[in-house]
């Protein structure tokens, strides 16, 4: 029987949650026995290649590419999990939600005290994904099945969730594993 596949991605995040996934230490060998990794920073596929049992999403959506990738994951994963505070509530990138986008860009590219930009250009290359008006957590964009909060969620939280999902159970986090910091 083919192994179930897992896909992971980091949207508007810092890869800290992926570091926490690696922090499950030698238990990663158990995970590798049970699953095949599809699209993930670990294997570097750019698109999901086959139907996945589990999709792990780190980070929220700050630009149109994040939204496209998130929808691609939703379409191709049976169970989609928000991993970390950025995915579940926007996290640090969502700090910009407290400032209008235009003001944010002006500060970053024109008026900040350390900015050197004599041509006064804003990023306008067509290759660059457009920024959204604000940063959205994942469940404001697609349906999310489970949330693993934390900055980052502990390795134990991620491992426990993976084991539960791979054995066809619900993810049920005990008291000590729900943390918002």
């Amino acid at each position: 029987m083919a192994k179930p596949r897992i896909a992971t991605t980091s949207l508007a995040g810092c890869f800290g949650c992926h570091m926490s996934l690696l922090d499950i230490d030698d238990r990663i060998l158990q995970v590798a026995e049970l699953v095949d990794f599809d699209r993930s920073p670990i294997v570097d596929f750019k698109r999901i290649t086959a139907r996945c049992a589990i999709g792990l999403i780190e980070g929220g959506c700050c630009n149109e590419e994040n939204v496209e990738v998130l929808r691609h994951f939703r379409k191709n994963c049976d169970v989609l999990v928000s991993v970390g505070d950025c995915a579940t509530m926007g996290g640090i990138p969502a700090l910009r939600n407290l400032v209008p986008l235009e003001e944010c860009l002006r500060e970053a590219y024109l008026e900040g005290p350390t900015v050197h930009n004599p041509e006064r250009r804003m990023p306008d290359d067509k290759e660059l994904p457009l920024l959204l008006d604000k940063v959205y957590c994942c469940h404001e964009v697609v349906k999310i099945d489970y949330h693993l909060p934390g900055c980052p969620p502990s390795a134990d939280t991620i491992f426990r969730a993976l084991v539960a999902l791979l054995s066809g159970k619900q993810v049920d986090l005990p008291y000590g594993l729900i943390k918002f910091d």
Partner: peptide
């Protein structure tokens, strides 16, 4: 923003969320 709040771990709002098993709010921010 619990991740950089000095009150985190001492906060009663956060503690209630932990006690109730809230992993993420269901409402829009």
């Amino acid at each position: 923003f619990c991740m950089f709040c000095e009150k985190s771990g001492h906060c009663e709002l956060q503690a209630l969320a932990y006690r109730f098993g809230i992993a993420a709010p269901r409402f829009d921010y």
